[in-house]
Design a protein around this nucleic acid. Structure first.
Length: 1058
RNA sequence: GGGCCCGUAGCUCAGCCUGGUGGAGCGCUCGGCUGAUAACCGAGAAGUCGGGGGUUCGAAUCCCCCCGGGCCCA
């Protein structure tokens, strides 16, 4: 079938195109058909989707970028013949969702959930909420054309997923990696719950005591370590003092006491404590303090100190010593500080917390038992320190202090019992396995390896409800522990299958202790929500219930997420992979950036710079949005700008115009693309050039996709259609397709253009699938109806290397350069393009260029509107140069004295000749009164110019000049073009078909002008499809118009010739 | 405080790995074109390549320090 003209008649509207395509895909079940085709392939590609957190009804623009990036790669691999695994996922558990539901149900704390709401109600509400979000988010993803298996996502709340999670916990247990221990976490004493890191996000300006406390050095008279704290209530739990080994410390004497503190802080401490006089006794590095023992001032008042006093000495902990505050000596209570706990655990210090769930000091706090930590306990402790003369100074500080974001109660750090996985034990294995994955960009791997190298044990337990239940049962009788790996394990221990794997139902499962036969109950914790997504690599494949699938697909060929996931998901996958399977579960990782606002700040609703998905999609077409995010350097942040999108969208008009142009002329000439073999046609140079460019594009496109440089591929695809096809090729073939006759040259142009556009559509499909599908249907498939139903069912080709001709491409580049230079010379000379130029003169210092110019002559002539091109040697311009000599009297005077006026006269007469010689030889000999006189270059200021008629422009190719002399004939040719342009304009105004013939009338009162027009009648007739031109006033039934052309009045009339 | 990334024209960004006279698009000014026309073409103005130091014959590029922004951690 032939190309039809539907496209030409259609007005371009990207949004309605996209609606059409959406409906088409739906009606024809295109995704299903793509999957069927993909599934037949035996080249597997396991893509693992990082599950977005299902806590909202719409997605963030960053999430859109994430999925579009995934989509473009999946589409690419499918069109490269891979069997692509594309199951999407959603992350559904966790505290943030619990809190949202709590708010909705009016719950204030954990007790409310248990007593007022009921855990079962609460969980059901969480589940319903998450389900609503998942379907809303799915709609958003589908909206931007993300082709993934949306009917079969993996959901972390499903029973099968939970069971898969248990598998890993059991694995860890079997490998002796699971243990129960203490960990310091933020705690809200009102809500009686621990808060995860990401919940500690709200701070308040609060006032606290700022105190310098003296810890007496053991066995030294009157010598004290000076520590600083804003939390006196932690002093009873003090275990040791931390110092920095490399910074300078001093011992000073003041008020008959010796105090040890850091040199840097000395001035500040002296000032604050109002010490009037002191002297420095000693100066030394912190290292020297190591092991120095001290006596705690409250030792006798606090029961727990009986245990803690064994550890009272200075330890080296550079990570704990912050410059710019305190004294360089940090009081450490491992039960109440994060760094303290880490340092303490290395020393084997127990994590002793002296505060209970409600914030009151416990019995072990001795004298302070029963007092609330930040108020009564603080006061009582400060009073005692004063009494014991251990308080150097008591001040006040206002600082940012974390508060509970629900009840605004100040938080405290507190050691609690938690379940851990001993990741530190498998650190070496983690490092080895991490090394097996490839990262794009490469620097991401450095970042990752740094994180892996600093791994700590993993706290997996949370005292919450909406999460994977910790599969640990404990015997009430003998405290034996069983770790359950599956439902089968439950049945084996006489347990009943729960109706739902979540709390509270799972808590009702009672097992029979295999040791003593007693009742075993589940430990009430749930798992950290990070656990969930970390097991996706096997849990999403229904492992271990279906082992084949996992064994066939694993490891994942590709994962890709934002760079914040380096420590997040990428790491948790590695960790779970090594715990459960001794290997890294992915081969390649691609990082993408964040979407920031135009100034590079994070988008926040409160900052007013937030762009919602809804707003974006209502304003911009899908393909434009896709291209916008995809062309941004993938791993760098995207500074979102409406203007940027706007600019990018202009490319789409060009794409449309290219196809519209093609379909207009092809349909006019009834071009049938079926059964055409390019190699059988007589291709012109520009055809061969475009075919070379296309295949170079295909080659680079494939290269970029396989190296995951999607942005480079996207830029290339757009550049090609805009620069090579639209701006260059179409211009070159205009003359050829405007011919009436059916010439082989025209056929070749159509065949080339069709081949190129069809292949280009294939490349553009993964990036902008909507317009690609549309143009495929309307342009390609309407002529080749036997092609597959969707462009996505075709394959992206490999480059046909035989078409690539680098030499030809560089020849074209050269021609372009010459044309540019010619146009530049025209500009300077003020000769518009309509006026033909008689001669273009090019001199070059490179051999070979001459041949190229001769070969490319037709293009240069056509594009620059020149009649002839001369290639000359470089001496041409040297000889053409005219030299102006300005006498330099300072030099001439002393040399020639009296005869100088005669010399100057003579020089004026022979200026050009002398100038030439001075430049060439450096001297010129002159005869004055029979006397030989040697003139040198230094005697003149030499200025070189070119003759008037030559406009010269110099470039890296050589020197290019145009002959500015425009003949009368050429001038009138320019005038003829003026006429032609106006007739064309009128034709268009009348809405005449491109191929219609007309009759034309021209009158003007300028007879000379009319004469010139008459001389060019043939040319004008041909260009305007005029059957005849009459030089009388146009008849009434014609369409006529009065024009002004270079200050002449001209009346032109045209009429359709039937 | 630590690790990594980014900083190039008014704006958005290439170039940096592998050192050799600073680029593109948009915007701006001027001009042109007119059967793809809400398109297109040309010219021009515009840069301390974040700052400083080093290596080198030569640094946007390699090294060190600092400043600003981002992510992750402390």
């Amino acid at each position: 079938m032939i190309i039809d003209d539907k496209l030409t008649k259609e007005k371009y509207n990207q949004k309605s195109i996209e609606e059409w395509v959406m409906n088409y895909w739906k009606d024809k079940e295109i995704y299903k058909k793509i999957k069927e085709k993909s599934n037949r392939s035996n080249k597997k590609f396991y893509f693992l989707d990082g599950p977005p957190y299902a806590n909202a009804k719409t997605i963030h623009v960053g999430t859109l970028w994430n999925k579009v990036l995934k989509d473009t790669l999946l589409r690419y691999y499918r069109m490269k013949g891979f069997n692509v695994w594309d199951k999407p996922g959603f992350d559904t558990h966790g505290l943030p969702i619990e809190v949202m539901i709590e708010k909705e149900l009016g719950s204030n704390n954990k007790k409310d959930i248990v007593n007022k709401i009921g855990v079962d109600n609460f969980i059901n509400r969480c589940l319903a909420f998450v389900k609503e979000n998942i379907s809303a988010m799915t709609k958003d993803f589908q909206e931007v054309g993300v082709f993934m298996d949306w009917d079969n996502p993996y959901l972390t709340y499903e029973d099968s997923y939970i069971e898969s999670g248990w598998y890993l916990i059991k694995k860890a247990y079997e490998k002796d990696l699971l243990y129960k221990g203490k960990n310091v976490l933020h705690w809200c004493p009102r809500c009686e719950t621990t808060l995860a890191d990401y919940e500690v996000s709200e701070y308040k300006e609060l006032e606290d005591p700022s105190v310098y406390v003296k810890f007496k050095v053991k066995n030294e008279e009157n010598t004290y370590l000076l520590i600083w704290t804003t939390t006196p209530w932690t002093l009873p739990a003090n275990a040791f003092v931390m110092a920095h080994p490399d910074i300078d410390y001093v011992m000073i004497e003041a008020n008959n006491e010796k105090l040890i503190l850091s040199k840097e802080r000395l001035d500040k401490v002296v000032e604050e404590s109002r010490i009037k006089e002191y002297k420095i006794i000693k100066e030394f590095k912190g290292k020297e303090l190591e092991g120095l023992e001290y006596v705690h001032p409250l030792e006798e008042l606090v029961k727990a100190q009986n245990e803690l006093k064994k550890y009272h000495k200075v330890v080296m902990a550079p990570e704990a010593v912050v410059s710019g505050e305190g004294t360089g000596l940090v009081h450490s209570a491992p039960g109440h500080g994060e760094i303290d706990a880490i340092v303490g655990s290395k020393l084997g210090v127990p994590l002793i917390s002296l505060v209970n769930d409600q914030g009151f000091m416990i019995e072990d706090a001795g004298k302070y038992a029963g007092l609330y930590f930040r108020t009564d306990a603080n006061n009582e402790i400060l009073k005692d320190l004063k009494e014991k003369k251990a308080l150097l100074h008591l001040g006040k500080i206002k600082h940012r202090y974390p508060v509970c974001w629900r009840c605004k109660t100040p938080l405290l750090l507190r050691a609690t019992e938690q379940w851990f996985i001993k990741v530190s034990k498998i650190k070496e294995k983690l490092i080895n396995e991490a090394n097996n994955a490839e990262w794009v960009p490469q620097w991401a791997k450095d970042r990752f390896m740094n994180i892996v190298g600093n791994v700590r044990d993993w706290v997996i337990s949370r005292q919450r409800f909406w999460g994977i239940p910790l599969p640990v049962w404990e015997c009430e009788n003998c405290h034996h522990i069983e770790v359950i790996g599956s439902l089968d394990d439950i049945l084996k221990l006489n347990g009943k299958r729960p109706s739902n794997m979540h709390r509270p139902w799972i808590d009702e499962v009672i097992l029979k202790c295999p040791k003593c036969g007693g009742q075993m109950k589940r430990v009430s914790d749930v798992l950290d929500v990070w656990f969930d997504s970390g097991i996706a690599f096997y849990a999403s494949l229904n492992y271990p219930r279906n082992k084949d699938l996992y064994e066939n697909l694993s490891p994942a060929d590709l994962i890709l997420e934002g760079h914040d996931q380096t420590r997040g998901w990428f790491f948790s996958l590695l960790r779970s992979g090594v715990i459960g399977f001794d290997s890294v579960p992915y081969k390649r990782v691609l990082l993408h950036g964040f979407v920031l606002d135009e100034q590079g700040r994070e988008m926040h609703k409160s900052l007013g710079n937030y762009v919602s998905f809804e707003e974006l999609m209502s304003k911009e077409p899908r393909d434009v949005v896709r291209l916008y995010v995809l062309q941004n350097t993938t791993w760098e942040d995207l500074k979102f700008s409406w203007k940027g999108i706007e600019q990018l969208s202009r490319n789409f008009t060009i794409i449309w115009n290219v196809f519209s142009f093609a379909s207009m002329y092809m349909s006019l000439d009834k071009f049938d693309p079926n059964n055409i073999k390019l190699d059988n046609l007589t291709l012109e140079i520009e055809d061969k050039w475009l075919l070379s460019r296309l295949n170079n594009l295909i080659r680079n496109f494939n290269k970029y996709y396989s190296s995951l440089e999607v942005h480079n591929a996207a830029r290339l695809v757009i550049d090609f259609i805009v620069e090579d096809v639209s701006h260059w090729y179409l211009k070159l073939i205009r003359k050829r397709v405007w011919e009436d006759e059916d010439t082989p040259s025209k056929r070749a142009a159509y065949a080339t253009l069709y081949y190129v556009l069809k292949n280009w559509l294939l490349l553009s499909t993964p990036i902008i699938p909507f317009i690609s599908e549309y143009l495929y249907q309307k342009f390609v498939r309407s002529a080749e109806p036997n092609l597959p139903e969707s462009i996505s069912l075709l394959e992206i080709p490999d480059a046909n290397l035989s078409y690539i001709d680098e030499k030809l491409e560089s020849k074209m580049e050269l021609a372009k350069k010459i044309i540019e230079n010619t146009l530049s010379a025209r500009m300077k000379a003020g000769i518009k393009i309509r006026l033909p130029i008689k001669s273009l003169i090019v001199s070059t210092h490179e051999n070979g260029i001459k041949d190229i110019i001769i070969e490319m002559k037709p293009y240069i002539k056509e594009m620059a509107n020149v009649k002839d091109i001369q290639v000359v040697g470089k001496e041409f311009f040297e000889q053409a140069k005219i030299y102006k000599l300005e006498p330099n009297y300072k030099e001439l005077g002393p040399s020639f004295k009296k005869i100088l006026p005669m010399i100057v006269q003579e020089v004026k007469n022979k200026e050009e000749e002398i100038g030439q010689s001075l430049v060439k030889n450096g001297y010129y000999e002159l005869n004055i009164n029979g006397e030989k006189i040697k003139l040198e270059a230094k005697h003149f200021k030499i200025q070189a110019t070119y003759p008037e008629w030559l406009e010269v422009s110099e470039s890296d190719i050589g020197v290019i000049a145009i002959d500015k002399r425009v003949s009368e004939e050429e001038h009138s040719e320019g005038l003829a073009r003026d006429i032609i342009r106006r007739i064309q304009y009128m034709r268009k105004e009348l809405g005449l078909p491109v191929d219609a013939y007309i009759e034309t009338w021209i009158t003007t009162d300028d007879n000379e002008y009319l004469y010139n027009i008459k001389a060019l009648e043939g040319y004008i007739k041909n260009e305007t499809r005029s059957k005849s031109i009459n030089y009388i006033s146009p008849p009434d039934d014609s369409y006529s118009k009065e024009w002004e052309v270079e200050e002449r009045r001209i009346i032109i009339g045209i009429k359709l010739k039937q």
